Each structure stands twice: as structure tokens, then as C-alpha cells.
Simulated scan of single mutants.
Amino acid sequence: MTTTAPPPGAHLGLTWRALTAADVDTAAELASRAEAVDRSLHPFTRGRIEGLLLSPGTEPERDSLAGFDGAGVLRAAGLLQAESSHPRVMLWATLDPAWRGRGVGRALLGWQEGRAREILMAASGRRGRIGVLVDEHLADRRRMCVAAGYAPTRTVQNLERALSGDEPPTAPGASGPAGVRIVGWSPAAGDGARAVHDVAFDRVAAQDPQIWSGLLRRLRPAWSFVAIDGAEVVGFVISSHDPQDGHGRVAYSDLLAVRPDRAGAGIGRALLTTALHAYSADDMDVARLDVDARNPARDLYAGFGYRLRGSGVLYSIEL
């Protein structure tokens, strides 16, 4: 670990080192043990761990930490995910239920914060934020964040809708509002979608290359669509599916965006209708998505029959 942030003390009973690609299966086993207790909204499946650990721009040798007991069993793991455009560093961690209540979680959070401060200090002249997203029902972890000096800054709602098989039969290529066409995803259309993404989320600097590349890695082309007016892309929806998610046959709408100057014209509704039809056609049971609790798009989703499944709270430290 080429970082000056000290690892948790030996008195906690674990030996610490950085995670490597060879640890993905072991980390997934640890996450499965934790998930049996936590019932997370977004469980750490093998695919999600691999995505965090091996994504471009991530440096596991410096930005991860794993704690092993005397028998060599992985009991705790933490990762950092830097988002340079904010700048922000997100902290992710999982802890074996049998090792909770011993101070391991607090110590791991302390190491992550120290490493995050190093990353943000390297971005000279820029303010930064350290963030931890915690499911609302995980009261112990929320209290730990508050005790460590983190403040709640945002609530993200996880919504779901049952797929009955009788979703509106909107097909790719059909005309949307005012002649807008909804077409299937393609690399060429993806370039236009990226431009919409950058404009739509410019206020929060969400056009981070790592965020976009992460969306594309998860993207399922048959469920992802763009809205085209003439030759211009004016909106898109990106969808994904994690087959290792233990919550059943779930289709995720990872991101839906419409160019701001075309908002309110029904383009988002047309995109979501098309995506729901695609999910149902592939025999998915449930459609899910995440939305900021302050986002007026919640009204759109409620109109489609989405209901609140749970919420996550973003805890932050501003530097």
C-alpha cells in the first residue's frame, strides 16, 4: 500500500493488505455473509465488486484495504472511488457480521478517510468532498458515520415497479412526442447520448469520464434507447441487469436524461415506456431505479406505478 494513511491497528486481530484481482471471489463471499444480515438495496455482488476494483482509473494497490483473520479468512474490505470532476471520493466497505462491534468498521472508515484526504489534496486548488452512501435502515452504520464527523447531505430513493407483461406496446423506432423517434442503443447514438448527459448534469459536474464509462460497462443494449429529433439525440435511457443480484429478475434503469431545452415535452415518458416494454419482453419480474428525493422526476415515476422500496443517505465531509 503506497499511501501514508496508516492501516487499522494490530490489536483488532486482523492482518491488512490491499485487494487484488485475485481477491474478487473471496470478497464476494464476504459480501454474501454481510448481505444475509444487511439486506442492502444494492448488494455487493461479484460483478459490482469487480467493477469497483478493476474499473479504469482505480488503483487498488493504494485505494483498497482488506483485513484477514489468523486463518486467512477475509473479514473486512474497503474501496475508494475517486470522481475527479466533483472532486469527490466515495467510500465503500463491507464487514463480516461476526466481526462487528469490535471497532473494525470504525478503524476501516478512518483509514478510508485518510486515503481520501490524500487523493483530494493532490487535486491542488480544488475543494472536495468525501462521501459514504448508507442504506437508511442500517442504523448502526449511519450512527458510525455521524460519530466520525459526516453529515447527511442527500437522500436517494430506490423505486420499483412490478412487470406484469402487459406494459404499453411501444416499440423501438416508433414516433415519440412532436416527431421524436425512440431507437435502440448503438455506438453512434451513444456519442450523442454522452453529449446530452454532459449538458443535463453539468450543474453537478456529473460528466465524470469514470461515471460514464461505468454506465457503459453495465449497459444492456437491448434495454437501452435514445430519443432522436432529426439527426440530434435529445434524450436517452441506459439500463442494466446484474444476474448475481439475489433479488430476482430485476431490470435497472441506471440513468434517464433529456436535454434541458426539451424537458417537459414527454420525451422522458416515451423513453421509459419503451424501456419497460423491453424489460417485460425479456421476462423480467421487476423494474427498479434510483432517484434523488428532491428530483421532480419522482412524479413521472409515480405515474408509471413505481413505489418506494427504500432509501439511501449520502453522508459527507466537505473539505
Rank of each mutant, 00 (worst) to 15 (best):
R106S: 12
G70R: 13
R62F: 00
F68K: 04
A77Q: 12
A66Q: 08
V132F: 04
Q81I: 03
L91F: 00
G128M: 06
E113N: 05
L79P: 04
M90G: 13
L74F: 05
E61L: 06
A71E: 15
G114A: 13
E113K: 07
R129V: 14
L65D: 07
A66P: 13
L79E: 05
A82M: 04
P60E: 09
G101K: 02
D135L: 05
D135G: 12
L79R: 04
I119P: 09
P60Y: 01
R129N: 01
E136C: 06
A122T: 03
S124D: 06
A93W: 03
L133G: 11
G72A: 09
E118V: 04
V134K: 05
G114L: 07
G101E: 05
V73I: 05
G72Q: 09
D96K: 01
L108T: 01
G67I: 03
R126W: 01
L80V: 05
R100V: 03
I119K: 12
E136S: 14
G72T: 06
T58F: 02
A123N: 06
A98D: 15
A76P: 13
P87G: 10
D69Y: 00
V89W: 02
R127V: 10
S124F: 01
A123H: 11
T94P: 12
T58Q: 15
L108C: 04
W99H: 11
L79T: 06
E59Q: 12
A82L: 10
R88C: 11
G105K: 10
A71G: 14
P97L: 04
R115H: 05
T94A: 05
V104G: 02
A98C: 05
L133E: 13
P97I: 06
G70A: 15
L109F: 07
R129K: 11
G114F: 03
A107H: 08
I130Y: 03
G110N: 10
G78A: 15
L74K: 09
M121L: 11
R127D: 15
S85C: 10
V134N: 10
A82C: 06
G101M: 03
G70V: 08
V73D: 14
M90V: 09
R115K: 12
S124Y: 00
V73T: 14
E136Q: 14
Q112N: 06
L120N: 08
A123M: 08
V104P: 02
L95M: 10
G78F: 00
P60L: 04
L79S: 02
L74H: 09
L65R: 08
S84F: 02
L91I: 15
V104F: 02
R117V: 07
R75Q: 15
D69M: 06
G128V: 05
F68Y: 15
R102I: 00
E83C: 03
R127K: 11
D96T: 00
Q81Y: 06
S85E: 14
H137P: 11
V104A: 02
P60A: 08
A122R: 07
F68P: 13
R129M: 10
V104I: 15
Q81E: 14
L91G: 08
L65K: 09
E113T: 13
G103K: 02
R100T: 13
I130C: 11
R100W: 03
A116L: 09
A98S: 14
L95D: 07
A71Y: 00
G72E: 11
S84W: 02
V134P: 11
R100E: 11
T58I: 08
A82D: 12
S84G: 08
V134H: 07
P97C: 06
G110S: 14
